[in-house]
Amino acid sequence: MNMSCNNSIKSGNIYIISGQWKGRKLPVPNNANVRPTANRVRETLFNWLAPYIQQSRCLDCFAGSGALGLEALSRYADLVTFLELKRSIAHLLMQNLKKLCALQAKVIETNTLQFLSQTKQVSQYDIVFIDPPFRKGLTEKTIRLLEETGWLANNAWIYVESEVENSQLHTPNNWHQHRKKIAGQVVYYLYKRYQKI
């Protein structure tokens, strides 16, 4: 590890559950719209993804605190791209990545839907996290853009977290629901994408 990195991380509102940074605490933005995925939900998700996370390329579509992408990096994902609209939130995420010396990460300050509307300019992603602000109609638009604009690898895994009243998602025919659970007011899914015939 590069000894010039600042490794002193103050106690915060999220901590990394497992991997190389297990137990590390990180501050989260003081913003009402930032809703880090609950620890229990995160632990369940990464238990599901355990066989696939190492050496994967991940996309965190609505990064916020970065809890999902940071957990993926801690568990040895090859790359995580974080998309975040708000400058202050993106800046804090960059600071947290710097503290962890996470060189295999990129934060892009952008509108996620606009970004995904572009022709992809990188290799396709193996794992994608979709956890947008609730009740803004963003989930299915994001799903459609990911599929239509070629961001997903043939056997990609897609995690979706949504408000419980939005439990009937419309997904492409080549996405197969692998897991679904409800935790309080949140419903979360894991989908496997198969190549279109």
Score class of each variant (00 low, 15 high):
Leu100Gln: 06
Lys22Asp: 01
Asn155Glu: 09
Ser74Arg: 07
Pro36Tyr: 03
Phe129Cys: 10
Phe62Leu: 04
Asn31Lys: 05
Leu26Phe: 02
Ile9Thr: 10
Arg57Tyr: 00
Ile89Asp: 15
Ser65Leu: 02
Gln168Cys: 12
Lys181Arg: 13
Gln118Ser: 09
Pro51Tyr: 13
Tyr76Ser: 07
Phe115Lys: 11
Cys101Phe: 00
Asn47Trp: 04
Glu147Gln: 12
Arg193Tyr: 00
Asn2Lys: 12
Ser123Val: 05
Val187Ala: 11
Leu83Glu: 10
Val122Asn: 14
Leu26Val: 07
Gly23Tyr: 05
His178Val: 06
Thr142Phe: 05
Val80Arg: 06
Glu71Met: 05
Ile182Met: 11
Tyr76Met: 02
Asn13Ala: 09
Arg40Gln: 06
Arg24Lys: 15
Thr110Tyr: 02
Tyr15Met: 03
Ile17Arg: 09
Ile130Pro: 08
Thr119Asn: 07
Asn173Ser: 09
Thr142Glu: 11
Thr142Ser: 14
Ile158Ala: 03
Thr149Asn: 14
Leu146Pro: 00
Glu165Gln: 14
Thr37Leu: 04
Met94Glu: 15
Pro51Ala: 12
Thr112Val: 14
Gln118His: 13
Leu68Glu: 06
Tyr191His: 08
Ile16Ala: 03
Ile143Pro: 09
Asn174Cys: 10
Cys101Val: 04
Arg135Phe: 09
Tyr15Val: 00
Thr81Gly: 01
Glu161Tyr: 00
Glu71Phe: 06
Ile16Thr: 04
Lys98Asn: 14
Ser162Ile: 07
Asn47Phe: 01
Ser18Gln: 06
Val41Gly: 04
Ser65Thr: 00
Gln114Asn: 15
Lys120Ser: 13
